[in-house]
Write a protein that binds this DNA or RNA. Sequence first.
DNA 1: CAAGACATGTGCCAAAAAGGCACATAATGT
DNA 2: ACATTATGTGCCTTTTTGGCACATGTCTTG
Lengths: 295, 295
Amino acid sequence: MPRSLPPLNALRAFEAAGRHESFSGAAEELNVNHSAISRHVRGLEDRLGAQLFRDLPRGVALTQAGARYLAAITPALDRIAEATEVFHQRPAGQVTVDAEPLFTMKWLVPRLGDFYARFPDVELRLQANSELADLSRYEADVALRFFHAGPANQAAPLLSDAPLYPFAAPKLVPTPLSPEELLKLPLLRDRREDTWRHWARLAGCPPPAAAASDWRMRARLAYESALAGHGVILASSELAQTDLAEGRLVQCSDIGFRMGSYHLVLAEGVLRRSAVRLFRDWLLDQSAALRSGKQ
Amino acid sequence: MPRSLPPLNALRAFEAAGRHESFSGAAEELNVNHSAISRHVRGLEDRLGAQLFRDLPRGVALTQAGARYLAAITPALDRIAEATEVFHQRPAGQVTVDAEPLFTMKWLVPRLGDFYARFPDVELRLQANSELADLSRYEADVALRFFHAGPANQAAPLLSDAPLYPFAAPKLVPTPLSPEELLKLPLLRDRREDTWRHWARLAGCPPPAAAASDWRMRARLAYESALAGHGVILASSELAQTDLAEGRLVQCSDIGFRMGSYHLVLAEGVLRRSAVRLFRDWLLDQSAALRSGKQ
DNA sequence: CAAGACATGTGCCAAAAAGGCACATAATGT
DNA sequence: ACATTATGTGCCTTTTTGGCACATGTCTTG
């Protein structure tokens, strides 16, 4: 049941001619010669097998069928024009974004160049907070947060569910290691979760013994320590992406797992602001592009 | 504020591609090569300055902006297709038409050839009644009636408001006459109205004396009598049109007047039937064409 | 893991559509 | 009668559209 549409350019000519009840008027509106309108309308009439205009001593008038048709076509084209309008306005405004520090630095900031280029008139205000707090407390419009979330969460769409893998500076570990060897290295531990214990279980090894370097630190510090070659970190492959690509980190093992995922949380009612909608759309597109394999 | 529409053919390509989330699929639907779709979409993206699709490892997916746009475009195109559909179906059905006998013969019947040619599957059932009767009494769908009507009547649109002029067979009156001479000829009078008295007043003459031939007869008979050369008739110039064109009648004077007009009356609810809508539209178009000077 | 199938991008060229110009017709108003 | 307005049409140019063939990159399958 492929839908059968009339020639759309002829339709635009007809619609303008119908509104003006004048081919010349339509021609002027569409910046073409009157003969173009005349031909389009005639072509459309032939194609539809119906007379749309009637000759007047001076000009033309819609027939009943033409008037009826016009009454359907005009709002349809209006709707198209309206939907298209959106792309022509350069949206402006501020968006306040609250995100976890490591995510901000390693995921968000590297992509913002694209956003700034596309929407130079939208001002992003970045805030870094680790805690899962009420958005209104920080006066943020959107927050990017890590949840131990279940599956699809309508209210908080997924941004990143990349699994955690072990990463280290290449000077510490020039080449992939066996799990046993890896667990003998200094393990950088996040302040909040003992992810290494979980990893060891997955790898089929005994839980790693506590060591001098096992001080648990904030994610941001742990990551910097890994970059400095002080140990191995379990980090999201998406966060590590740029450092991996530029050789500052290497992936030490194929064994990885998911602890949760990053999600987008919106403050009440902010979607009414076009700048916020824009940022949200852009974020979700970035996320989808990342997950679909390409950049 | 000329509305700015995107290239509509590109839009159709985008819409199909968006629905399928596949350029090949869209190409198949539109019976073109996939490269045509690819180019159209790219052109639209360039023109809108926004990305509508994202590359997938295999195929494409809509971006947020693309999805939002599609959601507006699809119903608009649907609406166009729906409105266009009407022209493709060959409407069928019966329409029962009740009209005054003279109007039927001299106005309606001469034009019906056009109707039959356009809508061969619509069956017209013609009835002739002189009286202004309830439509339902005759079981007619539409009636064509002469009113002494005021101006625009929404419920009963105008069909013909041509003025009455004196007509006669050329063998009786080979050339236009002065009113005085004209009033000496046998005057054919309609059974219901003494229109000659009115005409004489307009022409600035005394009311015509009663004569042997002044028998008032039905309009149809009066008209036939005029054709046969038995006298002069006051008749609507639109009704006399064909006989005038073919030389069976000549107009005897430029003095004319309006007694009322022919209108279209519809029975309750019959507009729900497409055949009736069609006949009504056709009638109104005929009427408008006639009044606008051309055929 | 190699081979084939899929899905899309692109250069090049041909076909088709659209548009402009000039002129014709027809009606209107001075 | 004549300029003006509004549209139809033949002829030609320009623009758009589309197809083909090939390239890339991925997924599937034996």
